[in-house]
C-alpha cells in the first residue's frame, strides 16, 4: 500500500522579530512525515505568494500545494474538499496556529467532517502494518502509547523532534502548486484583540474561604498534614513509601 501523507502547513511568526516564518509545530509535523517516507502532500490554504512557504520547501519538498484563499476566511471547507479528493492515509497538523487566534480547532473540525480518528499531542509516529502507533506527549516528559486504524488525523506536539534546517537551494528549487478554490465564509471577529498582558506566576497557593483562614495560612508555617512513622523497621518504611507511590499513581508506567 502506498502511503499518502498530507501535512497541513500554516504560516508562523517569529516571537521576537514578528517576521513570518514556518510555524514550529507544523514544521515538526512535516519532519515526522519526511521520516515516515511515502508520498507527501504538503498543503497550505491561503496566499500562494507568502514567502515563508519557502521555509517548508527548503526542508526537502518538491512541491507545496496552495489552496488559494483570501485572508480572514474559514479555510476548513477548502481543506475538506481537497482532502476528500486526495484521500490521504494520514493527515498531520500542528497544534495551534501562530498567527491569529490559533484555537487549535482546525484538525478537530477536519476529523469530524472526514469522520476520522484523531490522535492528539503526538511526539512520535510509526507504522505497523495497516495500523498507526503514536507516542503521546504528557506533561513532565512522560509518553503514552496509542494505536489507531488508518486513515487518521494526528496533531503534533512541541515535544516531537525539532524540524530539520531549511536549505536555501532546496527552498528556491521547490515549486508552489497553486489550486484555485472558492473562498470559505468570512470568520466574524467577535473578540477584541489586545496586546498580551503578562501574568505573574502564582507563588503560593492559598486555599482559604475566609479572611481568617487566609491570614492563618499567610502567617503560619505550613505544618505537615501528612502521616508520620517513627523508627519503623526498614522494610515497613519501604512498604509504606511504595504503597503511597502506587496509590497516588506515581509509579504508573515505571
Amino acid at each position: 500500500m502506498g502511503l499518502d501523507i498530507a501535512v497541513l502547513l500554516s504560516i508562523g511568526r517569529h516571537p521576537a522579530s514578528g517576521r513570518s516564518r514556518r510555524a514550529e509545530n507544523d514544521a515538526r509535523a512535516l519532519e515526522l512525515a519526511l521520516n515516515l517516507g511515502g508520498r507527501i502532500h504538503a498543503i497550505h490554504a491561503g496566499d500562494p505568494d507568502e514567502p515563508a512557504l519557502r521555509d517548508y520547501l527548503g526542508m526537502g519538498l518538491e512541491t507545496l500545494s496552495v489552496l488559494r484563499q483570501p485572508a480572514e476566511c474559514d479555510v476548513v471547507p477548502a481543506l475538506v474538499r481537497h482532502l476528500t479528493l486526495i484521500r490521504p492515509t494520514l493527515i498531520l497538523t500542528g497544534s495551534a496556529a501562530e498567527q491569529g487566534p490559533g484555537s487549535g480547532m482546525l484538525p478537530y473540525l477536519l476529523a469530524r467532517q472526514l469522520d476520522l480518528p484523531l490522535l492528539p499531542a503526538t511526539a512520535g509516529l510509526a507504522l505497523n502494518g495497516g495500523l498507526l502507533d503514536a507516542l503521546q506527549a504528557l506533561p513532565r516528559g512522560r509518553r503514552r502509547q496509542l494505536r489507531a486504524d488508518l486513515p487518521a488525523v494526528v496533531t503534533v506536539d512541541r515535544a516531537a523532534p525539532a524540524a530539520r534546517q531549511s536549505a536555501y537551494a532546496q527552498a528556491r528549487r521547490g515549486a508552489i502548486d497553486l489550486i484555485d478554490m472558492a473562498a470559505g465564509p468570512i470568520i466574524p471577529a467577535d473578540a477584541r484583540e489586545v496586546a498580551a498582558r503578562p501574568r505573574p506566576r502564582r507563588l503560593k497557593v492559598m486555599s482559604a474561604a475566609t479572611a481568617a483562614e487566609r491570614l492563618r495560612a499567610a502567617t503560619e508555617m505550613q505544618a505537615g498534614r501528612g502521616k508520620l512513622m517513627v523508627d519503623p523497621p526498614a522494610d515497613e518504611a519501604a512498604r509504606a513509601i511504595l504503597d503511597y507511590l502506587v496509590s497516588e499513581g506515581i509509579l504508573i508506567g515505571r
Binding site: M221, Q222, A223, G224, R225, M229, A234, D235, A237, R239
Partner: peptide, 22 residues
C-alpha cells in the same frame, strides 16, 4: 518532615536498599 505528606523517621541508609528491593 513538617512539609512532608508522608514522613519516616529512620536512617536513609537502611530504607533506601529496602525500597529499591521492593
Amino acid at each position: 518532615v513538617k512539609r512532608a505528606d508522608l514522613a519516616i523517621i529512620a536512617d536513609a541508609q537502611s530504607v533506601m536498599p529496602a525500597l529499591a528491593r521492593l
